[in-house]
Design a protein around this nucleic acid. Structure first.
Lengths: 144, 144
DNA sequence: TTAATTTAAGACAAATTTATCATAAATGAA
DNA sequence: TTCATTTATGATAAATTTGTCTTAAATTAA
């Protein structure tokens, strides 16, 4: 469904957000230890998300990654997915056709419309805050 | 969503089915001309689907691929997807966790449950016959 | 039987994704 | 200032997916 890069990115953001709620900046080493992700690859992905203004960073000693509390509510899952994987999962044709729409539909087009709308809606309405709260409360896991 | 191999496989099967309804065997060259797919790669994929008993083939002159009419009704989209991409799209964790279920859920688990159930249901209930009929009637396209 | 045609199968190559490594830049403490 | 620490960046490498090419096997017609 998502690329590995996207999976690592999402897990990292959720972990960083959960710690930011406790006013803790986290280093990339701590992030990957808590998300079962490869350190260098994940550092690059999180770095890209800094550029996208999804997460913030401070270099040097006592530095690390964090997310402003008021941003957590604004940032949706769809923002992370779009930043890393683009929007093909939302808009691309299920059979890979360049052009495929209601006027010139592929044989699966109308079958996919509903599924994609549901997926889009779910990711658009899921904030990082919500996910981080669930994680902090120990209701879910980020590893295994 | 699906791999390129899966996209080519699905398009090939729909085209072959549409021609089988006219009692025409089709050669791989005709399949790729009508589905905008790479010939050698697609030949390999369709060959794998022969082994899975999703499509049938005859070698030699006047040979080609075809699908029994009564099989078209039995074969579902989910059979093709599973044969080529496996079942990770139906059962895998959205964040890539090895173990993720109702008891030990990842932060996105319950959000994905419904989406995946809908996708599974859609692919399980869509037969090749239905897609081939729509294509034959010119209601949809396989290229572009 | 021979030759032509088509799928079957496996080796090989290119492209993309995933991942690592080395170095630069920024920051803070001593 | 100097040094240690951490993110930022770019080069490189490994793994996977995508794609090609060559040859074998099967089938049919002449």
């Amino acid at each position: 469904m998502f690329s590995k890069a996207c999976e690592y990115g999402i897990k990292s953001i959720i972990y960083i957000a959960s710690q930011s709620m406790l006013d803790r900046r986290v280093k990339i080493g701590e992030v990957v230890e808590n998300t079962d992700s490869p350190i260098a690859f994940t550092a690059k992905i999180v770095g890209a998300l800094v550029k996208e203004n999804i997460v913030q960073s401070v270099t040097g000693p006592y530095g690390g990654f964090y997310i402003d509390k008021h941003r957590m509510e604004q940032i949706k899952m769809s923002d992370i997915v779009t930043a890393i994987d683009g929007d093909s999962i939302f808009n691309g044709c299920g059979l890979g056709l360049k052009e495929c729409d209601d006027e010139q539909p592929c044989p699966m087009h109308f079958k996919f419309v509903q599924i994609r709308a549901d997926l889009k809606n779910m990711l658009n309405s899921t904030s990082i805050l919500e996910l981080a709260e669930g994680l902090k409360a120990g209701e879910s896991i980020l590893m295994r």
